[in-house]
Design a protein around this nucleic acid. Structure first.
Length: 658
DNA sequence: AGCACGCCGACT
DNA sequence: GTCGGCGTGCTC
C-alpha cells in the first residue's frame, strides 16, 4: 500500500506539503515523527501531521529522504495545538509546531541540573489558614482558573507546590511556569529536590539534545512535573491536571518572535482542552488578569494577605527630584549613610528600559503627552518632532515650558554608569557593584556579583530589572529607586501599569526579613498614580483606577490590539505596502455593520524605524470585540500577498510596540 | 525563510 | 571583460 505524508514545515508558508514514501520506509512512518525532505534545492526538516493512503496531484511528488526519530515526538494534542496557534497567532502551522518541539537530533543523557548535595527537604511547614483555604479551593476544581493574589512573602510557592503534590498523587501531571531568571536560582532547586526523580526541567541554557531528552521524559510519562520558562507550557503531558504560572505579570511569558504567543493564552487553551486547572499568582497581577478576577466567572481570586514569616511591609518615602541637583537626593544619601554605618546593605534600582528621549521641564516636571492618547510623546530626532506612536499625532518640540514658562526644558535620561560614578563619589569607602542587562550577558559575572553581595563583600548593588526580580538578600535594609519616571515615559498605554508593578516588586526587596526595611522612590512626579499608590502599597486601589482609565480610553482589557509590522529593505516599498494593507483593512472594516467594528488606529513608522537595515512601519488595529478584530486581520492577511522583499509580522495582543 | 536566477554597476 | 549587488519567483 503506497503512503503519502502531509507535512508542515518551519517556513512562513501557510500550507502543508505532501510527499511520497519510498517502499522501504512505508511501515515506519507515523504522525509525530520528523522527516528530512528535499524542498526546492535544499533539504529541510518536515513534521508529519497526517499519513494518507491516497493522494492525487497534478504535479510530481517528491519522496522523503529519511526519518529522524525512532519514536513519535508529538501526537494529536500537539498537532491540534499547533493548528490552534497558527489560527490564533496567524502564523504557519509549521512555525508553531517547530516552536513547541525541541530541535535536538539525539538525546543527551547529561542531567539538566545537577542535584544538590545538601537536600534541604524542609521540614513540613505549617500552613496558614489562608494557604490551606487556597489549596482546598484549587483542588476542588470549582473554577477553570484561579489567581493567587498575595504580597511578597505570603507563601504562594508553598501553595503551588502542595497543589502540585496533590495532583501528582492523583496521577495527574503538572506544568510549573516561572520567569526565565528564576530558573537558575532557588525555586528551581527547591522544586527539583521536592519532586526528586519526577521532574523535568526546561531552561534556556539547555542544549537542543538535553532539551530533547527532557521532552522525551515528559512524553513517556517518566516524570510528572515539568518546570520551565515560557516554552515549558508545551510540555507534552497526556494527562495534564494543573498548570501553574508563577509571577503571572511577567512580560517574558510572551514570545518576542513569530509566533508571538503568550504562555498564559496557550496555557488557558491547553487547560480547557484537557480539563485541567490553571493557577496563576503574583503580588502585582497584569491588568488582564485583574479584570478577569473582577468578573469572577472564569477566574476565582484567592487572596493571601498575610506574610507567613511575619515582618511588616517596608516604609516607603517619595522624594521629589525637582528640588534636587544630583541623581542621588540628599535624603537618599542620608539613609544610605545610616544603613551602611550599620553594616547593612543597599540596593539601588534604575529602570533604563526606556531608551527613547522624553521631553520634560526641569523646573516643574511638566512632560509632553499626546492629547488623544494617554501616552507620552517621543522625540524624533530626524524630523525634530514630538510624535505619538498610537495615533500618529505630532507636534513641534518646544523650548519654553507651557506650564511654568521656564526655559529649563530638555530631553533627558541618565544611565546606571553615571549613577555609579556619583555614588562612588558620595561613598568613597563603600564597595559598589553594577548589574545590568549588558553585564549579565556574562553569566559568571552575574553569579559572582550576586554571591559577593550575599556574602557582604559588596555594600551597594546598583542595577536594572534583574535586581528587582525574585532575589532575596537578608541584609538589605534600604532600596533606592533612583528614578521611578523612566518607565513612565515609554510611549505606551501600559507604562503606568509597568511602573507600578516594578515599584512594588523593587519595594519587596527591602525588609523581607526584618521590620527595618525602607524604600525611597525618587521621582519628578510624586503625584503620579503609580508612585502614589506604590507609596501606600495600595495594589487594589491602583488597579481599580487604572482599569477605569483603560475603560475611558478603550485600551485593553476593554479591547483587543493587533499590531502588524511591515518590514523590508526598501523604504518606499514598505510605505506603499503598509498603505496597501491599511486600505485592505479599512475596506474590510467598513463592511462590518454590527456593533464593535475594529478600527485602524495608526499606520506609521515603528518607534524603531529601522532595524538591521530593515525599514519598519506598523499598523495598529483595535477592536472592542476581540473576535471581530481577529477575523478582520485574518481575512485581510488572507487576501493580501506580500511582494518579495516585504515581510509582515503579526503581533496579537502586543505588550510593546517597538 | 532560503535559494537560484537574472539583470545592471565598478573592479581585478 | 567578470564579480556581486538585490529584485523576483518558487518551493510538494
Amino acid at each position: 500500500m503506497p503512503k503519502f505524508l502531509s507535512l508542515v514545515l518551519d517556513i512562513p508558508l501557510k500550507q502543508s506539503f505532501t510527499y511520497s514514501v519510498p517502499p522501504d520506509l512505508e511501515d515506519l512512518v507515523r504522525v509525530g515523527l520528523r522527516v528530512i525532505v528535499p524542498f526546492g534545492k535544499r533539504e529541510i526538516t518536515g513534521y508529519i501531521v497526517d499519513v494518507l493512503e491516497t493522494f492525487e496531484a497534478d504535479y510530481q511528488l517528491k519522496p522523503i529522504k529519511r526519518i529522524v526519530d525512532k519514536e513519535p515526538l508529538y501526537g494529536k494534542h500537539e498537532v491540534d495545538l499547533a493548528q490552534w496557534m497558527s489560527r490564533f497567532y496567524l502564523c504557519s502551522q509549521g512555525e508553531a509546531l517547530s516552536m513547541m518541539i525541541p530541535g535536538g537530533r539525539r538525546d543527551s543523557g547529561t542531567p539538566a541540573l545537577e542535584s544538590e548535595d545538601d537536600l534541604t527537604i524542609g521540614s513540613v511547614k505549617d500552613l496558614s489558614a489562608e494557604q490551606a483555604a487556597a489549596i482546598e479551593a484549587i483542588l476542588s476544581g470549582s473554577h477553570p482558573m484561579f489567581y493567587l493574589y498575595g504580597i511578597t512573602g505570603s507563601g504562594k510557592s508553598e501553595v503551588f507546590l502542595r497543589c502540585a503534590e496533590a495532583m501528582i498523587e492523583k496521577g495527574k501531571q503538572v506544568i510549573y511556569l516561572v520567569p526565565e531568571i528564576t530558573l537558575t536560582h532557588q525555586l528551581a532547586r527547591q522544586v527539583v529536590n521536592r519532586f526528586a526523580g519526577k521532574v523535568a526541567i526546561l531552561h534556556s541554557a539547555l542544549t537542543p539534545s538535553q532539551r530533547l531528552a527532557q521532552w522525551k521524559k515528559i512524553k513517556s510519562g517518566e516524570v510528572m512535573l515539568a518546570i520551565g520558562a515560557r516554552s515549558a507550557v508545551f510540555a507534552p503531558f497526556e494527562n495534564l491536571g494543573l498548570v501553574i504560572i508563577d509571577e503571572e505579570h511577567e512580560n517574558s511569558y510572551k514570545s518576542g518572535n513569530t509566533p508571538r504567543y503568550h504562555a498564559r493564552q496557550v496555557a488557558q487553551r491547553r487547560c480547557v482542552e484537557m480539563k485541567a486547572t490553571l493557577v496563576m499568582g503574583s503580588a502585582t497581577p497584569s491588568l488582564e488578569a485583574w479584570s478577569l478576577m473582577k468578573e469572577g466567572k472564569q477566574m476565582r481570586c484567592l487572596r493571601l494577605d498575610n506574610r507567613v514569616g511575619g515582618g511588616v511591609p517596608p516604609q516607603v518615602d517619595v522624594v521629589d527630584m525637582k528640588f534636587e541637583k544630583r541623581t542621588i537626593s540628599r535624603s537618599l544619601q542620608e539613609q544610605m549613610k545610616l544603613v551602611l554605618a550599620k553594616k547593612k546593605q543597599v540596593i539601588l534600582f534604575l529602570n533604563r528600559r526606556g531608551y527613547s528621549y522624553f521631553f520634560h521641564c526641569k523646573s516643574c516636571g511638566y512632560e509632553m503627552v499626546c492629547p488623544n492618547c494617554t501616552v507620552s510623546l517621543t522625540y524624533h530626532r530626524e524630523h525634530n518632532e514630538m510624535v505619538c506612536h498610537y495615533c500618529g499625532y505630532r507636534r513641534k518640540p518646544i523650548d519654553v515650558c507651557p506650564e511654568c514658562h521656564s526655559l529649563d526644558v530638555g530631553y533627558s535620561g541618565f544611565g546606571t554608569e553615571m549613577v555609579q560614578q556619583e555614588v562612588q563619589l558620595l561613598f568613597p569607602n563603600a564597595s559598589i557593584a553594577r548589574l545590568d542587562t549588558d553585564s549579565a550577558k556574562d553569566k559568571k559575572h552575574m553569579v559572582s556579583v550576586l554571591d559577593d553581595f550575599r556574602n557582604g563583600k559588596i555594600d551597594i548593588l546598583l542595577g536594572t530589572q534583574m535586581v528587582a526580580k525574585g532575589l532575596n538578600f537578608p541584609s538589605v535594609e534600604l532600596v533606592g529607586i533612583v528614578l521611578a519616571d523612566s518607565g513612565m515615559n515609554i510611549p505606551d498605554f501600559r507604562s503606568q501599569e509597568r511602573t507600578f508593578s516594578l515599584l512594588m516588586q523593587v519595594s519587596g526587596r527591602a525588609g523581607r526579613y526584618n521590620d527595618q526595611g525602607k524604600v525611597i522612590i525618587q521621582t519628578f512626579h510624586p503625584e503620579n498614580a503609580a508612585v502614589a499608590y506604590a507609596k501606600v502599597g495600595d495594589v487594589d486601589g491602583f488597579f481599580d483606577q487604572e482599569l477605569l482609565m483603560r475603560k475611558e480610553t478603550g485600551f485593553p482589557p476593554y479591547s483587543r490590539l493587533i499590531n502588524l509590522v511591515v518590514r523590508g529593505r526598501n523604504q518606499e516599498k514598505v510605505i506603499a505596502q503598509a498603505a496597501c494593507l491599511e486600505a485592505l483593512l479599512e475596506g474590510l472594516a467598513s463592511q462590518i455593520t454590527v456593533e464593535g467594528a475594529p478600527t485602524v488606529l495608526c499606520n506609521c513608522e515603528c518607534p524603531l524605524e529601522k532595524i538591521a537595515s530593515n525599514w519598519r512601519h506598523h499598523i495598529l488595529v483595535m477592536g472592542t470585540e476581540a473576535s471581530l478584530a481577529h477575523r478582520l486581520v485574518a481575512s485581510a492577511l488572507h487576501q493580501y500577498t506580500a511582494p518579495s522583499g516585504i515581510y509582515i509580522e503579526v503581533d496579537m495582543d502586543p505588550l510593546q510596540l517597538l
